[in-house]
């Protein structure tokens, strides 16, 4: 029996030398340490020997089992860790699972970029209705009835008293009528013009208007604020100029041009070779507007400005047809 024990041990260790993977190791375990393995068979045989033999053999048998188990454990560790290292690598070049790319509409995104700049310098963001009274849209803003200034904004009428607002400027009337100075707000939103639809014009678009009314607000500060905006939005190297213009609700009025960011001011198709791009209209709030909302033009002054969002978006993204913005072709939307 002792011979059988030492023979089992020899066989086990000899076989252990050649083990290359966990499958062979498992086979080895079953052959020797399994339920019907060699060790178990020896224990069965052990039951039949004499008590004296049992004393000697018991010790030997237990020793055998321990040695085999220890060797097995050692092998298991070695093989498993080496198998982990040499496990087949994944093909990292296979495509991943790509979720759909969500996108904001560029008009809304542009509007928010502009809003953010003014929010940072203390402007509130206020919205108003798109169906507006003729009073707020025109009369309060110093557009006399039967005046050619009304031709500047072709209007959709709901009836003689209500219109689709032609600009977001009436929101300033709403703010000032409900609030004492100081008033400092920007007013983003959708506006409508009764214009034929083609590549360059659409019957609706979006604007951001701004107003600041307080004691001692001046044109110089208007320039400062808008130059700050232009530098934040178009880069600190942007050149600018303010040209006199006309809006019924501001006086003096101006239009702000910046160096064409497409050609850098050299002149191109977009800036009509002038090197300049008009980006907004502005001016000092007309005393008639201040009087209309019950402010005293001798006590307070204010500035106002307004810009068209589509134009800015289109220039920025080199879009040459405004209709693309409202056709909502997914192939277009996903480009931004």
């Amino acid at each position: 029996m002792l011979n059988k024990i030492s023979e089992t041990k020899r066989q086990f260790f000899a076989a252990a030398e050649g083990i290359k993977n966990s499958k062979e190791l498992e086979d080895l375990r079953i052959a020797h340490l399994g339920r019907n393995g060699t060790v178990a068979t020896l224990f069965e045989e052990f039951k039949t020997v004499t008590p004296e033999e049992k004393r000697v053999l018991g010790k030997e048998l237990n020793l055998l089992r321990q040695e085999l188990q220890a060797k097995f454990d050692e092998l298991k560790e070695v093989i498993e860790s080496s198998e982990k290292l040499s496990a087949p690598k994944i093909d990292i070049s296979l495509p991943g699972r790509v979720p759909n790319k969500g996108t904001g509409h560029i008009v809304a995104e542009t509007m928010n970029e502009i809003i953010t700049i003014f929010k940072k310098i203390g402007f509130s963001v206020v919205t108003g209705p798109e169906i507006e009274s003729d009073k707020n849209n025109f009369e309060a803003l110093n557009f006399p009835a039967d005046h050619p200034a009304r031709d500047m904004q072709d209007t959709f009428f709901i009836n003689k008293d209500f219109v689709l607002r032609t600009h977001t400027t009436p929101v300033q009337i709403r703010i000032m009528q409900t609030q004492e100075p100081p008033v400092r707000a920007i007013m983003p939103g959708r506006v409508y013009r009764n214009e034929a639809i083609n590549a360059r014009s659409y019957c609706m678009f979006h604007q951001v208007d701004g107003i600041y009314v307080d004691e001692k607000v001046t044109f110089a500060e208007l320039k400062g604020t808008l130059v700050h905006f232009a530098k934040e939005y178009y880069g600190s190297s942007v050149q600018y100029k303010f040209r006199p213009s006309f809006f019924p609700f501001t006086e003096p009025s101006a239009e702000m041009d910046i160096t064409c960011f497409i050609c850098g001011g050299k002149g191109c198709r977009v800036c009509k070779q002038s090197g300049w791009l008009e980006i907004l209209g502005c001016g000092m709030v007309d005393p008639n507007v201040l009087k209309y909302v019950g402010y005293d033009p001798e006590k307070v002054t204010g500035y106002a400005f307004g810009m068209g969002i589509e134009r800015i978006s289109m220039l920025k993204h080199d879009i040459n047809d405004i209709r693309l913005l409202y056709e909502n072709d997914v192939r277009f939307l996903k480009q931004f």
């Binding site: 979720p99 759909n100 790319k101 969500g102 996108t103 904001g104 509409h105 008009v107 809304a108 928010n112 809003i115 929010k119 203390g122 402007f123 509130s124 963001v125 206020v126 919205t127 798109e130 959709f156 983003p188 959708r190 409508y192 019957c203 609706m204 913005l325 409202y326 909502n328 997914v330 939307l333 996903k334």
Partner: peptide, 28 residues
Amino acid sequence: AVDDLEMVNSMRRVLIGMGFNEIMNNSL
């Protein structure tokens, strides 16, 4: 300061994050 568009804009951000594409249609 108030921001009337805060709510809409935060909803927009969530929707964009979930993979939605924002559209704008004519109100007319």
